[in-house]
Design a protein around this nucleic acid. Sequence first.
DNA 1: TCTATCATGTAACCAGTTACATGATTTT
DNA 2: AAAATCATGTAACTGGTTACATGATAGA
Lengths: 204, 204
Amino acid sequence: MAKKRKVANPLALAVMSYLRQQPMHPYELGRTLIENGDARSIKYNHGSLYAVVRQLTSAGFIVEKETSREGQRPERTVYALTDAGQQELDAWLRKLVEEPEHEYPAFGTALSLIGALPPDQAVALLRSRMEHLAHSQAETRELIEQSLARGVAGLFLVEEEYRLAQSEMESSFVDDLIKRITDPATEWVRSWADFHARDAVSSS
Amino acid sequence: MAKKRKVANPLALAVMSYLRQQPMHPYELGRTLIENGDARSIKYNHGSLYAVVRQLTSAGFIVEKETSREGQRPERTVYALTDAGQQELDAWLRKLVEEPEHEYPAFGTALSLIGALPPDQAVALLRSRMEHLAHSQAETRELIEQSLARGVAGLFLVEEEYRLAQSEMESSFVDDLIKRITDPATEWVRSWADFHARDAVSSS
DNA sequence: TCTATCATGTAACCAGTTACATGATTTT
DNA sequence: AAAATCATGTAACTGGTTACATGATAGA
């Protein structure tokens, strides 16, 4: 039974990673995350950030370094990474890079229950999905090009390239799936359609 | 701002989908989910199931149909899908099939922070990942074949095929990434390495 | 018969989200 | 000078997970 991380939210990983460069206060962490574009791969939520910072603190991975107040603004508490934090960051990141995790993408869920829709409807929806995918791919490609043009190093685009590759593979998968469903030679479509034929009759 | 679903947990979708076939009690829903293999695409947790059932009930998507007690076993409460539930199920499933969602796969997170590791370590870990991927692909392929051999209809394997396709694309992406990192012609690797060279010296 | 596993559910706890608060700065 | 937005944080709520409880059945 794999030891659970004391703090499991990916936001915490980003927080530790930023704090390794330099101590910061939470709000600044959030801004960095956004500006940096990391919020595209790590779900960011203002409220969660403070929660995560609290958790990291009580786990001993970060410490309050100083508390300063400017004028009448709320206090800004600056945090720094501890030694334990360093180690946790390193171990966690390595694990993430090395070991694939079992995940639950929404489209997987959709596919596992798609039988609940009649095949012709499923096909129509899948076609529509293809268009959505094409749009978002175009956007991602543009984002990558613009970034390169602005001189962003390739290292920071790998993650977008990954997103793009995923999306492209999904497109071809869906394309193929549509073909299979609409191909009269695919035996299982028959029973699928029959199953729904009953419904259609009884609900009319 | 997209209307939020009253009940958002994917488990709820599976529950409604099963209840459309026939009324059941929660424990049976759980068993079905496992036997059926749907737990591979929908995260299942015994406790969450009861939570979700409660939520669906108070949202009016399912109702308590009867409560029976056999011997001294705990009561079994049987639930049935309501009309509102039917509609919610249909709308939700369609949306899931039609609209790609922005997601946060763990490897995306890893890639967005991989710069925090020195490039040679990154490469070593990525190589190791390739092996893990190969193993899990072999398992999935086997699962698919065995299922086909047992006469499972192709419709119920689409989701595993999707998982496999994803994993395969990840393999080729990682393979390519390793090549780029180790290719001396890739300019950005230089600055990446330099960045870590400082660390290595200062921590010695 | 003792122990494990199945069958079924409840309750306490915790992580994460939504909503609120409030001074400072910029825009209209 | 009113309105909007930024900067910074806290607090209440809720969804989901872990842990507990308990009778029934099956293996050792």
